[in-house]
Simulated scan of single mutants.
Amino acid sequence: MRAWQDIDPVEEIPLLGGDVTVGVVRVGDTVRRPLGPHSPLVHALLRHLAQVEFDGAPRLLGVDERGREVLTYVEGEVAGRPRPGWIADEERLRSVARLLRRYDDAAVGFTPPPGSVPDAPAVDHPAVRAAALDEPELVGHVDVTPENVVFRDGAAVALIDFDLARPATRLDEVVNALTHWAPLAAPGDRDPLLSDVDVPRRCRLFADAYGLADDARGRLVDVAVLRSRKSWHVMRHRAEADGGGWARMWADGVGDVIRRREAWLVEHGPTITAALLDRSAAL
């Protein structure tokens, strides 16, 4: 990792929108982010993506004189808050799925360096253990929120903010993305622009564009329910142990949102699964 030095002082522009990481700024055509326990894994992953010529992620340039990682700035638009009118656009949804599939295919060949994967939060609960169903297939992004997808000309072109990258399955990746983009949420917890969308249809559109296998489609809702149960306990633990953005989200009621999502998934899961598996239905 080489040191990065600025030749000329450039204005730092705060980049807002993240729930946890603070201190992210744009400096010219670069982004500066604080280092953390995740950094060894993220840096190795970004180097791998560059080596395999995956163009849908920032490039790692080094560390600046203030000890911040330096990344290339990816031009485009992201869906901040309030959400833009295009957040419900189905073609954009498909493009997110295609980008995620390209990323997952590129990440399959990556082997994390020894000791680079941060320890998981020490949460010993049956719901957390039950969610560990499958062996990881790759190091997933696992944070495909609207804030972390860059669009150009109406299509998703890059993923940003790899701080939560971790060993995962392809199904984990799809469930995570659908949580935000379908969205898998009780209607009252969705953005107003997504409150009345056809969620089963959007799940099917995403799965088709990603190329999700039939066996994974049949398990998607069950995995989403298990992940929701695990998420509640992990979020509470991080709010108590780490504070900061985690505590703020918990205080704002994210735990209640997760519980409502779980109940909604249990109620509407059969309809979602039927849509995912009915290949004869025209979309």
Rank of each mutant, 00 (worst) to 15 (best):
A3L: 13
W4N: 04
Q5D: 06
I7P: 06
E12V: 00
I13S: 06
P14S: 13
L15R: 04
L16T: 15
D19Y: 14
D19Q: 14
T21S: 12
T21W: 03
V27L: 08
G28D: 03
G28F: 12
R32Q: 09
R32T: 01
R32C: 13
R33N: 11
P34W: 10
G36V: 06
H38Q: 11
P40Y: 02
P40R: 10
L46R: 02
R47A: 12
R47H: 15
H48E: 02
H48S: 07
L49V: 01
E53D: 03
F54N: 03
G56K: 09
A57V: 05
A57H: 07
P58T: 14
R59Y: 00
L60Y: 10
L60R: 07
L61R: 15
G62L: 09
E65D: 10
E65V: 13
R66A: 15
G67Y: 05
G67C: 09
T72G: 07
Y73F: 15
Y73C: 12
E77R: 14
G80I: 12
R81Q: 07
R83S: 15
P84Q: 02
G85I: 11
I87K: 02
A88T: 00
E90L: 13
S95V: 06
S95D: 00
V96T: 05
A97Y: 10
R98Q: 14
R101Y: 04
D104E: 13
F110E: 05
F110Q: 06
T111D: 14
T111I: 15
P113G: 01
G115A: 04
V117M: 09
P121F: 10
V123G: 05
R129M: 07
A130C: 01
A132L: 14
A132R: 15
P136S: 01
E137D: 03
L138V: 00
V139W: 07
V142I: 15
V144L: 02
N148R: 05
V150F: 09
D153Y: 13
A155H: 14
A155I: 07
A155P: 06
I160A: 03
D161K: 11
F162D: 01
D163A: 14
L164H: 14
A165S: 15
L171F: 02
D172P: 00
A177T: 11
T179D: 00
W181L: 09
A182Y: 08
A185S: 11
P187Y: 04
R190N: 07
R190P: 05
L193S: 04
D198P: 02
D198R: 10
R201W: 10
C203D: 00
C203F: 03
A207C: 15
D208Y: 05
L212I: 13
A216Q: 12
G218W: 04
R219W: 06
L220G: 08
L220R: 08
L220Q: 02
L220C: 12
A224R: 02
V225P: 00
L226E: 01
R227Y: 08
S228Q: 09
R229H: 03
S231D: 11
S231I: 15
E240C: 04
A241K: 14
G245V: 07
A247D: 05
M249I: 03
A251D: 09
G253I: 10
D256N: 00
R260I: 08
R261E: 00
E262W: 00
A263W: 06
V266F: 03
H268F: 12
H268Q: 12
I272D: 02
T273R: 15
A275S: 15
D278A: 14
S280E: 02
S280Q: 14
L283Y: 09
